[in-house]
Nucleic acid binder design. Structure first.
Lengths: 259, 259
DNA sequence: CGGGCCGTTGACCACATTCAACGCGTGTGG
DNA sequence: CCACACGCGTTGAATGTGGTCAACGGCCCG
């Protein structure tokens, strides 16, 4: 049995016309979509600037003139903003098939740093050339817009997680996102390697590194995850469903508090 | 004198090549950009479906088939997601000149509700028609992409605020954003009307309505804001700079705690 | 060996949430 | 007309989650 959430309904008097509600849909065809994106870029005839990166390398830096968009062929990447007062914030994590650099379009220069977290390959392509080719190749535009739309959806998911989940649930949700991303790309999800430090995870989730560590320990104690013998960045996920169950449980506990 | 933030540096060993750091740039020409957007849409010859809305009216609803993008001509709007488990989250606030509906591009249907907070006017235009016209009118594509890019920047700013600021500072930052948005649109910023309830503000900022109320009271006590005689949604802002000062002060206090 | 860096854990504390009571304006029905 | 309920906002007191500070262990590298 599920109770009303504690917060007052925000749009109470709006008559809800039918069951249009929906959650974030998990596209099972995502894997093909990503391969298709990469294939179409190869086939497009656009000059692709391929680049190998190592952990710590930047794809682009805040302030650099915007000319190129970047499509990730492999690896793991973080996008970081640095404010004028020195706050540093991880605002996104990115994987194979994702596009980077959209933040530069409006400003004319990049407004974030994009940093590789592991070895990987980046395909960079000239934005103007892409636009020019899009005129004769309308599918490219659709692909680009869909990528931007998906990115916005992910950022909204981050906001949702930050606003509605407890620290523990946020860490669990972070793992869920990571596993889901791997799954969509056809990578194994039973043994994963977080290529982020506890401090980076905490920064991304709006909490301290100690809280991340404690949350992971609790998750391990409850059997949701399992630390492999060597290294505390390697995590076994016996059952991906258990992560969702954990998140839902912590939500249910919150509402159970009101009897 | 400014101290290192409490959190460990996330990219410590990366040699920082020069002073490329930058904050979110405040475009002073924003007002013209917005008018220009609306003008170009009028001139484009695209069939614009103009619609008047009242507080509570939806521009679109989650689940509806995506066909149109919407440009706001006047008014105030919120974008809300509802999760499968019933959590409701305000993920964005929007003003004149903003575009709505990008979330529908990737999924083929909208994944959020867009709701008017006050009377306003929305211009809706067919997405496919826009794409078709963009082929002969390349400026339209640039305009569209810039709008999407700007929206992503704003979402990242929300994440930044949620992750790095205390509850009080978050409320102050919310006011700052609101005032900045009005300023960019040439509206008066010394007397503003929040057309959101405390519950909605709290939801958007990841805190409870009580905390919002307390934060606003504290801001008033410190003279940063001033409640007009009638109604607690009407706020006087004697000096917009004081809001920034308040946010910086609360950041400085946090780092001053470490001696 | 010593010194970083990373991760974990414990003790303490503060900030934000929870719960409750109250004031105010508004709309509604006796 | 007043009584009443209801939504919205404010404020106080108690509680608890997550932050702060500190100590410790493992690992890698000079």
């Amino acid at each position: 049995m599920r109770f009303e959430p504690a917060a007052t309904r925000l749009t109470p008097r709006l008559p809800n016309p039918g069951p249009l509600r929906c959650g974030p849909g998990v596209a099972t065809g995502m894997r093909w979509l990503i391969e298709d994106t990469l294939q179409r870029l190869r086939d497009s005839g656009l000059p692709l600037h391929r680049r190998l990166v190592h952990a710590g390398d930047t794809v682009y830096r805040c302030g650099e003139a915007f000319r190129e968009l970047h499509v990730l062929h492999s690896g793991f990447f973080k996008v970081v903003t640095v404010t004028a007062d020195g706050r540093e914030q991880v605002v996104g994590l990115h994987f194979k098939g994702d596009w980077l650099g959209f933040d530069g379009i409006a400003a004319g220069h990049y407004t974030c740093d994009a940093v590789a977290l592991d070895v990987g390959e980046v395909w960079s392509l000239d934005y103007e050339a892409l636009l020019a080719l899009s005129v004769s190749e309308p599918g490219l535009t659709g692909m680009l817009h869909a990528a931007m739309s998906r990115q916005m959806a992910r950022e909204r998911e981050s906001i949702l997680s930050l606003c509605t989940l407890s620290a523990d649930a946020r860490v669990a949700d972070f793992l869920r996102q990571w596993v889901e991303a791997l799954d969509k790309r056809g990578l194994r999800t039973d043994r994963i390697t977080l290529c982020l430090s506890r401090a980076e995870i905490g920064n991304f989730l709006g909490m301290t590194l100690e809280s991340v560590s404690r949350a992971l320990s609790r998750l391990a104690r409850e059997g949701v995850i399992d630390f492999a013998e060597k290294g505390r960045r390697h995590v076994r996920i016996p059952d991906p469903g258990a992560i969702n169950a954990y998140i839902e449980r912590s939500l249910a506990q919150a509402s159970a508090a009101l009897q």
